[in-house]
């Protein structure tokens, strides 16, 4: 679906990074600060100038796609959601239809339906007319999520979508993400390894601009790999309900 071949980005990724993601996969990219997670997700989104290698979407190099065609297949949720406080929720989500607009025509029934579904899925239907300035941080992050869903993409890329949220809002957003249509391919950079293990079947651990491990949570979240990535000894315990590995920081 989307694949990186021999990527190289100066001061971001070590030369020769490979990563292939199949249609419908749910992948979380983990790693310490400065590991190259954001660079990688931006490269997948086509927003990062490359020194070498290429990203392919549907087997075709990203550079061969027009910006508009690409935006119909691929949506991106940034780390810092630039506040545009005078916009209403509905106006921002409607911008997700921009790549589908043709000429001077107004919104089509398909546009309206996609916007309504995105608002519904993000739990924002009741807030559609509210200005962004009067939303909480958690609600605002859901607006960005809904805007990306309104694009009706095949691939959804998210760069730390839960960075500024509390535990409940983090889990809530990841649950909404998990509840999207099964055909949607999702790649998310996450800081929270424990929530990543609970919500994503495939984890990619990055350190120093290289892929250190790639696989199911049980294969990636091992004490040895985590210490190699983060540089601190950690404990890994099974989640009491699911048995999914959960990581504990070392006791002081």
């Amino acid at each position: 679906m989307i694949a990186a071949h021999q990527l190289a980005v100066p001061f971001g990724l070590a030369p020769g990074l490979d990563l292939a993601i199949e249609a419908g996969e749910r992948v979380a990219i983990l790693g310490p600060n400065g590991a190259g997670k954001t660079t990688l997700i931006r490269a997948l989104a086509g927003l990062q100038p490359l020194r070498g290698g290429e990203v392919r979407l549907d087997g075709r190099p990203l550079t061969a796609w027009s910006a508009r065609e690409r935006a119909r297949r691929l949506a991106w949720v940034p780390q810092d959601t630039d506040a545009a406080p005078d916009f209403t929720v509905g106006e921002v989500v409607a911008l997700g239809r921009l790549p589908w607009r043709r000429g001077w025509r107004g919104p089509t029934p398909a546009d309206a339906a996609a916007i309504a579904r995105a608002l519904e899925h993000a739990g924002l239907t009741a807030l559609a007319d509210r200005p962004l300035a009067r939303l909480s941080g958690g609600e605002r992050q859901r607006v960005v999520f809904a805007r990306a869903l309104a694009q009706t993409p095949a691939v959804l890329l998210l760069d730390e979508p839960t960075a500024h949220l509390d535990l409940a809002h983090r889990a809530g957003l990841l649950a909404r993400l998990a509840g999207t249509d099964a055909s949607l391919t999702v790649v998310a950079v996450l800081h929270d390894v424990n929530l990543a293990a609970l919500y994503f079947p495939r984890l990619v651990l990055i350190a120093g601009g290289r892929v250190l491990a790639d696989g199911a949570p049980a294969d990636v979240l091992t004490p040895a790999l985590l210490e190699a990535a983060y540089g601190v000894p950690v404990r890994v315990l099974p989640h009491p309900e699911t048995g999914t590995p959960q990581v504990l920081a070392p006791a002081p």
Binding site: R42, A45, L47, S66, A71, D82, A84, L98
Partner: peptide, 13 residues
């Protein structure tokens, strides 16, 4: 208004 990168990701040249 949502940022230059978001505009680019929405297909805006």
């Amino acid at each position: 208004l949502l940022g230059e990168d978001v505009a680019a990701s929405l297909g805006v040249p």
